[in-house]
Each structure stands twice: as structure tokens, then as C-alpha cells.
């Protein structure tokens, strides 16, 4: 049963992040995802200090607010004429530093391990169960992640056309009257939500990997957004299943193995993708050369 819950948690993380990651990669904002996943830390710490408990809803709220603040700060530094990568770097390091200080100052009151924040402890998922009316409903993390995935799917499904247009051609989207800024913040809000929901179980670094790596792999395999979304989720799920068994075999970190497997899949796609892989490129070039000769 433990295997099942861990794999299910990993797959839910992969699905949530895989869908959002596609839009981040297409909008060239992959590193914003990295920034958000780090800078939600003070939000979590403040939620802890206020409530004094590991209340998931409050933590979600705190982190979502911090995520939006991060995006807002990055945006306003950029509007002030700073390069986007520099503004990302400044904002997320400052917020992360505040988070670490808050946690280590109140280490006595906060039962939140920094290692756990960074690497997560997916192996313990099954022990923290949700109990309603004395009836065991299964791991709380699965419910939290499932709910987040549902929210993400509903929002993306409702506004699929708008998100698609914003991802490929923001100028056109603005011209036909889509509130581009609103959808930008909506997407970022979803990213921070899913970061926090995944935080406890898989940690900040795996979230970044799951946001970027499967989506980039899918980007190499197809030219259609709808197919890319499906591929990205499937690749994420495959990485979490493969990663779990690899971790069991190696006796090492589950989250780390999941990312390692995702990385291997990316390398495979990078070399062998029928559309954009190295081999396909080489063949195309050779056939062009033969045709011109």
C-alpha cells in the first residue's frame, strides 16, 4: 500500500506541475517557476507563526499570496528597466533569505525542517492521513494534491483558449481584448498554489524540476499544445513511477530519483525525438545535402 500512495502522490505532483509547466516553458518564464518555488518559504513560515499549526489551508493561502507578491515584485523591477533574469534572481533570493531567517529564529516554535522544505519527505506521505468522522480517508497529501490538480484543470480548461493565445502571442491576445495581465497573474497564482501543495511531500527542488523538465521534454516531441500537455503529464507520471523504483533499488532519496529519471527521459528526447532530436536533425541535414548535390 505504501508503494501505491507514494507513487500516487508523485504522479499527482507530476500532473499538476506538468500542465502548468507547459505554459511556463512556452512563455519563456521557466525561471519564474523556480523563483516562486523558493520565495513561498516566508509565506509558509508566517502562516506557521500565525496559526501555530500545520494547517494546510492557511499555508496554501500564505504561500499563494507570497507567490503573487514575488511575481509583482519581479514585474515592477522589470518595468523599472532591469533585465528579467536579474530581477528574478534578486527577488527570490531576498524572499528565501527572509524565510530561512524566520524559520531558524523561531526554530523552537516551528516544527518545520529546512531540509524537508528543500527535499521533501515523500516517503512519509502515508503516515499523515486525513480522518473525517473517525473514518480514515487516506493520506492528507493525496487529497491536497488532488484538490489542487482539480483547481488547475478547471481553470485551465475554462480558459484554455485564452491561456493558449497568451502563451503564443501576448500582443495579439491583448489586441483581441483578453486581459493578458490578469491571466498572467492567474497562471502565477496557480503555480504558487501547486508549489505549496507539493512542498511538504516532494520539496522545493523537485517542484522546479517537475515544472520544467517534463514540459520541456514534451516540447521537443510535438508541435501542438494539447498534445504537449498530455505528453508532459505522461512523462511526469512515468518519471515518478520510475523514480520511485529506482530509489528503492538504490536506497536513496525518492524525490531526487524522480528528477533524475525525468532528466534521463529529457536526454532521450533530446537525442532521439522524431521532430526535434539530434538524430532527426542530422538526418534532415544529410538528406538536404544529398538533395542539393
Amino acid at each position: 500500500m505504501a508503494d501505491f500512495w507514494i507513487i500516487l502522490t508523485g504522479t499527482l505532483v507530476a500532473a499538476t506541475c506538468g500542465v502548468l509547466g507547459c505554459f511556463l516553458v512556452l512563455r519563456k518564464m521557466a525561471m519564474v517557476g523556480d523563483a516562486i518555488s523558493h520565495s513561498v518559504l516566508p509565506g509558509i513560515a508566517i502562516a506557521f507563526l500565525i496559526s501555530g499549526s500545520r494547517d494546510s489551508i492557511l499555508m496554501l493561502a500564505g504561500a499563494a499570496v507570497l507567490g503573487l507578491i514575488t511575481v509583482f515584485l519581479i514585474q515592477s523591477l522589470q518595468n523599472g528597466g532591469l533585465q528579467s533574469d536579474a530581477s528574478i534572481g534578486i527577488v527570490f533570493t531576498a524572499l528565501f533569505a527572509i524565510g530561512v531567517i524566520l524559520i531558524s529564529r523561531n526554530a523552537a516554535h516551528i516544527d518545520l525542517d529546512l531540509d524537508c522544505v528543500l527535499f521533501g519527505e515523500i516517503a512519509y506521505v502515508q503516515w499523515d492521513t486525513l480522518i473525517i468522522n473517525g473514518y480514515d480517508m487516506g493520506p492528507a497529501a493525496v487529497w491536497l494534491l488532488g484538490g489542487t490538480l482539480l483547481v488547475v484543470l478547471i481553470v485551465i480548461g475554462l480558459f484554455y483558449k485564452q491561456f493558449k493565445l497568451c502563451a503564443f502571442d501576448p500582443a495579439l491576445a491583448a489586441a483581441v481584448g483578453i486581459p493578458v495581465a490578469l491571466f498572467h497573474y492567474l497562471l502565477m497564482g496557480l503555480v504558487s498554489l501547486s508549489t505549496v501543495a507539493s512542498f511538504e511531500s516532494v520539496g522545493a527542488i523537485l517542484v522546479v524540476g517537475m515544472l520544467i523538465v517534463p514540459a520541456s521534454t514534451a516540447y521537443l516531441l510535438t508541435d501542438r499544445l494539447s498534445v504537449m500537455l498530455i505528453y508532459s503529464v505522461l512523462i511526469g507520471a512515468a518519471s515518478s513511477i520510475g523514480g520511485y523504483y529506482a530509489a528503492k533499488w538504490l536506497d536513496a532519496s525518492i524525490a531526487g530519483s524522480m528528477i533524475t529519471v525525468a532528466g534521463l527521459l529529457f536526454v532521450l528526447a533530446f537525442v532521439f525525438s522524431p521532430l526535434h532530436g539530434l538524430v532527426a536533425r542530422y538526418h534532415k541535414r544529410r538528406s538536404l545535402k544529398a538533395a542539393s548535390a
Binding site: 521557466a30 525561471m31 517557476g33 523556480d34 527535499f119 527542488i205 523537485l206 522546479v208 524540476g209 515544472l211 520544467i212 523538465v213 520541456s216 530509489a247 538504490l250 536513496a252 532519496s253 524525490a255 531526487g256 530519483s257 524522480m258 528528477i259 533524475t260 525525468a262 532528466g263 529529457f266
Partner: peptide, 14 residues
């Protein structure tokens, strides 16, 4: 950048 960052780090954590 994101891919290299997270994959190298993942391998490192393992």
C-alpha cells in the same frame, strides 16, 4: 537553465 539546475541537483541529492 531550469533543466540543468534541477536535474543536476536531483542527481546530487540521490
Amino acid at each position: 537553465l531550469g533543466i540543468v539546475l534541477s536535474v543536476f541537483f536531483g542527481v546530487g541529492v540521490v
